[in-house]
Write a protein that binds this DNA or RNA. Sequence first.
DNA 1: TTATTTGTATTATAATTTATAATACAAATA
DNA 2: TATTTGTATTATAAATTATAATACAAATAA
Lengths: 133, 133
Amino acid sequence: MIIKLDMSSSIPIYEQLRNQIVLGIGRGDLKIGQGLPTVRQMAEDIGVNTMTVSKAYSILKNEGYIEIDRRHGAKVKPKLDNSQKFKEYVENELSLLITESRLKGISFNDFLNMSNSIFIAMKGLRTLGGEIQ
Amino acid sequence: MIIKLDMSSSIPIYEQLRNQIVLGIGRGDLKIGQGLPTVRQMAEDIGVNTMTVSKAYSILKNEGYIEIDRRHGAKVKPKLDNSQKFKEYVENELSLLITESRLKGISFNDFLNMSNSIFIAMKGLRTLGGEIQ
DNA sequence: TTATTTGTATTATAATTTATAATACAAATA
DNA sequence: TATTTGTATTATAAATTATAATACAAATAA
């Protein structure tokens, strides 16, 4: 599992780590059901405080991407969310990104091609057992 | 020009304002060449400090969405950007958003439909004069 | 020329956020 | 019973965010 962090970024480390774990699940580096490194292990690996990792894990739990058991640790388990709130979140983020792209001269075709490439690269979420979710 | 701000959000006001102005250009509320309200006027309108507005304008200038003249004020003038850096920014944001959507159960079709709706709603950037950019 | 309006800089202040460090605790497991 | 888990606590420090009051340089209008 590759975690890319930019310590000089203005984006908080816990947020970068949260994003990297979400992307890791999408890429398939992290399978559904797979355990994440312990808070202490992850903190040592990436060279940050344990509470920074704990915060990232806590956010991922609240967002419904992982489950956390005491002793058993953190485990990948994305929960579906067909709420209007989540749709609006996606719409708002997408609106901003498409607007920025448009104003900067990226064609809508290029934008759709990018989207396709990204989607294809992450197609087929698999569990630890191997079956497709 | 409608500016929607959430004062209880964790996103800084200057960043929300920056986003709202970008979206306003995309929607056509702000035409190319059109002047933005003065820093003081905008600050009064939305009820924040002048320096908060100044910071938002300054970011938009640095990102190449507006131009700023002393005395003449801030003016909408998006600059094209075909740099690799900008492409990577879009790719990274898009990757995260598609991954989140996928994990939450939004189909790729729905995602593309959303993208289409958003793009259609902002088609045809116009200048103050009326000609299409 | 003079007064006014523009964005911006400065200074001070305050609250919040972010991150670290050291320690401790509750729960579950071996 | 000892160990490992996520988490809570406490203290500390730095950076960020926002406000307030004031001032400045540049450009325009009177």
